[in-house]
């Protein structure tokens, strides 16, 4: 990986650390309402202003990062693990298992993932846990498909076959040939999924069927203060900008990794 990629990863790590450390450093309580401080514009005492209940916006944003970001990361890890194992098993076992998986994933991919997740929440009811389950349930399928297809393709390559014939042990073959072929593509997809999971979580919370106020989830914050936007535009700009920047970060990271990956393969589009 190039220096740019490492820079992104370092930024992600620092960001994640901040999510947990920053709330300790912030003096203002993100939950304490104070009607005297209602709708204050950004100033030196409240860097990003206050909301309609007089709560400090900066501490709410910093404190709220954990909901969106951490939930998104959890979804990506869970769906990534499920997707990779099922894709790998489906590719290596072949036969009826592979057939069933392919049919199922084709059928599922007829429906867009957001809608499926939304319908799942519709059935199971609103709530953070249900959203986590719903999004994990829909995100694993494309990952499994990708892993399955790449694995099958790699196993048909001459170098893999010759390794097999010359008796290179199973584990070594996986280490040497399969993982290098599959991993880059999966990483690109996973980074993309983090951004998209965040958008979904924030979207659900905005609609009132995700994380509920008074918890300072960014999407929920937008919904909560929407009637004050004209009088206090920072209430709209700040949480939205927070979501946008973090999602943008992951999308840029994914794009950067894909570019490097494409260059390595020599297709220079």
């Amino acid at each position: 990986m190039s220096r740019t990629s490492w820079m992104y990863i370092a930024m992600a790590a620092i960001g994640l650390l901040m999510v947990f450390i920053a709330p300790l450093l912030i003096i203002q309580d993100p939950f304490s309402a104070n009607s005297a401080n209602r709708l204050l514009p950004p100033s030196s005492s409240h860097l990003l202003g206050t909301d309609h209940l007089g709560r400090d916006l900066l501490s709410r944003i910093v404190y709220g990062a954990r909901y969106t970001v951490v939930t998104a990361l959890m979804i990506v890890v869970i769906s990534g693990l499920i997707g990779m194992s099922i894709g790998f098993v489906s590719a290596t076992s072949g036969g009826i298992i592979d057939q069933v998986f392919m049919r199922f994933s084709e059928w599922m991919s007829a429906f867009p993932s957001v809608i499926l997740a939304f319908l799942f929440v519709g059935i199971a009811g609103p709530g953070l846990l249900n959203i986590l389950i719903a999004l994990s349930l829909v995100f694993w399928i494309p990952i499994a498909r990708l892993v399955r297809n790449t694995t099958v393709r790699t196993m048909q390559e001459p170098y893999y076959e010759s390794a097999m014939i010359s008796g290179v042990p199973h584990v070594k073959r996986i280490q040497r040939h399969l993982i290098p072929a599959v991993l880059p593509q999966v990483t690109v997809l996973l980074a993309l999924n983090i951004g998209s999971a965040m958008l979904h979580i924030a979207g659900f919370s905005f609609l009132g069927i995700g994380i509920q106020p008074p918890l300072p989830e960014w999407g929920a914050m937008l919904n909560e203060s929407r009637s004050y936007f004209y009088a206090a535009p920072w209430l709209m700009i700040v949480p939205g900008m927070a979501i946008f920047l973090v999602v943008l970060f992951w999308n840029l990271l994914s794009e950067q990794m894909r570019d490097e990956f494409d260059q390595k393969r020599g297709s220079g589009l």
């Binding site: 951004g195 958008l199 709209m236």
Partner: peptide, 17 residues
């Protein structure tokens, strides 16, 4: 890249504003 990273509810509010 920007368009794909915009939360659509925020985009809606920005346009409205």
């Amino acid at each position: 890249i920007v368009g794909a990273s915009l939360p659509s509810f925020w985009l809606g509010f920005l346009l409205l504003y």
